[in-house]
């Protein structure tokens, strides 16, 4: 096929940048540990000071940044390919909003205070409910449009219920906690969070990665793809549940982080010849680059303010969205 060598170069470059950003994320932080000391103490096994900070604070943060970035980039590319809609993103299926609702319920009821893993588990449960509702509404034969509409409906309902919880919150601290959680953050996550969310994310990746060839065929529309041997029911199942498992788990441990799933595929599509199967790995790596950079930036810009990563991605992402709409409009004219 055309441009196969250029495609390999793009993937190699993205992998290198991702690896570099992962290391940079490990050595960035308020503790001010030197570059070589930081990496050395990761392996030294020491229980005090640097080793503890590296293994208990920075390593889980960097790993989650990498995995959640991959999740957002991959699911964004898969959903845009499946729905053949350039504005599709993981939040569109109502997964992020419902996971947030689950988390909010856990905070609101005090469940998360009693049981530390209550919050991520409730968030995961929220995303499972959302995806079951979307799948039921769209039906087995449902096309891309019904999936979008069902997702929008679920999203709106979950957002409304979250607002209700905020509205009725008995104490201002719970409301503040809910607000902060919804902004999304990778601060103070532990390896427990990695072990909790990791398996779901990997499962989701495996389902989404299997979509490459069917998504290419879907470029020609659903009827043509079906006539070319694509099992549309299986594709819908893999796309919806793969996105739900990975994005639900990501949201459960880090809150709702917007725009990366929307932006990463758009940035990389021209570099891979627009072919959906090639965009999947490229966008996964691109998402990891974006999220790791954003997480490093939050620590550099305001080290003592705990700037939320979701706020930063939205500040950078929203203008990009404007530019995207502008460019699309110009193409249509």
């Amino acid at each position: 096929m055309i441009g196969a060598s250029r495609y390999r170069i793009v993937l190699a470059l993205l992998s290198a940048v991702t690896a570099a950003l992962f290391v940079l994320s490990l050595v960035t932080g308020p503790a001010g540990i030197g570059f070589s000391d930081a990496l050395a103490s990761l392996y030294s096994g020491g229980d005090q000071g640097a080793g503890l900070i590296m293994r208990e604070i920075r390593l889980p943060r960097a790993i989650l940044g990498l995995m959640i970035g991959i999740t957002l980039g991959l699911s964004g590319a898969a959903l845009q390919g499946y729905l053949r809609n350039p504005l599709a993103e993981p939040g569109l299926l109502g997964i992020s909003a419902s996971a947030s609702l689950g988390a909010v319920i856990a905070i609101y009821t005090g469940f998360s205070a009693v049981f530390p893993l209550g919050l991520p588990l409730a968030a995961l449960a929220g995303s499972v409910v959302a995806v079951l509702v979307v799948q039921a509404m769209a039906g087995a034969r449902g096309g891309a449009l019904t999936v979008i509409l069902a997702g929008v409906a679920v999203s709106s309902f979950a957002a409304a219920m979250t607002s209700l919880a905020l509205n009725l919150s008995p104490n201002p601290f719970a409301a503040l906690e809910i607000m902060f959680w919804m902004l999304g953050s990778l601060t103070d996550r532990s390896m427990t969070h990695v072990w909790l969310a990791g398996p779901f994310m990997v499962l989701g990746w495996a389902m989404l990665a299997a979509l490459g060839r069917p998504l290419d065929a879907l470029t020609l529309g659903e009827d043509a793809a079906a006539s070319m041997g694509v099992n549309l029911r299986l594709v819908q199942f893999l796309a919806v549940f793969g996105a739900a498992a990975s994005v639900g788990a990501a949201t459960a441990v880090a809150g709702a982080i917007g725009f990366i799933g929307l932006v990463a595929p758009h940035l990389l599509r021209p570099l891979v010849g627009s072919l959906p199967s090639r965009l999947l790995p490229a966008s996964a790596l691109g998402g990891a680059c974006l999220l790791l950079s954003a997480d490093i930036l939050t620590r550099i810009i305001a080290p003592d303010k705990d700037l939320k990563i979701g706020v930063l991605t939205a500040i950078i992402g929203a203008p990009f969205f404007v530019w995207l709409v502008y460019r699309m409009r110009r193409k249509l004219l």
Binding site: R84, L218, L220, S274, L275
Partner: peptide
Amino acid sequence: PQEREIGW
């Protein structure tokens, strides 16, 4: 198909 769809 009758519809000439080219998504990307």
